[in-house]
Design a protein around this nucleic acid. Structure first.
Lengths: 167, 167
DNA sequence: CCAGATTACTTTGACTTCCAACTATCTGTC
DNA sequence: GACAGATAGTTGGAAGTCAAAGTAATCTGG
């Protein structure tokens, strides 16, 4: 994909950022670290999901449906949970439907609402795909349990501040 | 953009992941935290850059050029530093060129290579835009210096493992 | 009870990212 | 020196994201 560098690009950026007398070097490095880490995790999980022609985004939709009792959820609810725009959910469900993993069904009482329902194959695929994702340690193999916990704790502050959820 | 939830979606996901007897709950929560954090940071920085019609990606290109002595770099080198695919750099430089912030110039000796060069306006925009990015604390306002340092330290392990750079 | 506001989803269009294929140019080797 | 292989960048296509506008259905206040 990309050639490895002979130095850590974020250390280097910190050095040069400071040399320009720009502030918030630590914040810049933290932010940049998050961006790169996301790139890495996404690439690894997508790789693990390739056998099912799934992406992380579509996999998340399947997992969310799997977690709901009947394997059925309104599209809007999924958008809220996954922090995605309505149009993105429409698009993801379109593709999952084409793949036969999900099917759209009308809401029994509210005719504005469309429900996504896990198909039999969808349910089976979630299970298999999750095994692969777990085997890939969800893309964060280098982190100890302690690291994972610390990371989660620190990023929770960020998410809480972004109104990600009511705390 | 999206409605806030009455609970922390990552805590909830951890609960349900465990209830399915799936492993690596901690890794899953760490990975998901990274994905959401990236979404938040990206949105905030993009917002700060809106007055210049810049995105984080294009801003990073400008900063990289600004850091180089002459404001000139081969496209490929920028792809390596920013961990982006060649095609992405081509696209970013296309747009920056349309915006008049960068201009393509031929490499003096290697005719395969194209150099991107910061224009006068480009150099001025980097400075102004950086003030805005710093004012927005690079999107990680909630993190203390300590948090930022810890985050950087933990994610460095992940990046090192991904061959992001030679350690 | 009904007009206006709200809600749910889809559509369209602009961007970004990657991959794969392609063109052009160098480089190392015999 | 010639040629096979590597390297640099561009192009086209698939996927995903968001914003804004459109359609349909439901809710609400007078």
């Amino acid at each position: 994909m990309v050639r490895p560098l002979p130095f850590d690009p974020i250390e280097e950026a910190g050095r040069q950022w400071g040399a320009q007398e720009w502030d918030e070097v630590g914040a810049m490095q933290a932010a940049t670290s998050i961006m790169r880490a996301q790139q890495i995790v996404l690439a690894r999980v997508d790789e693990a999901l390739r056998p099912w022609s799934l992406t992380f985004a579509r996999y998340e939709v399947l997992v969310l449906l799997h977690f709901s009792k009947e394997g059925v959820l309104p599209l809007g609810k999924m958008g809220d949970r996954l922090m995605l725009h309505q149009a993105s959910i429409t698009n993801l469900v379109d593709r999952l439907e084409q793949q036969g993993l999900v099917k759209r069904v009308p809401h029994p009482t509210d005719r504005r609402t469309t429900l996504a329902q896990l198909t039999g194959e969808g349910r089976s695929v979630v299970g298999d795909a999750t095994k692969a994702v777990v085997a890939a340690q969800v893309g964060v193999a280098e982190l100890s349990d302690r690291d994972a916990r610390d990371l989660h704790r620190i990023l929770r502050k960020l998410r809480a501040g972004a109104d990600d959820f009511e705390s």
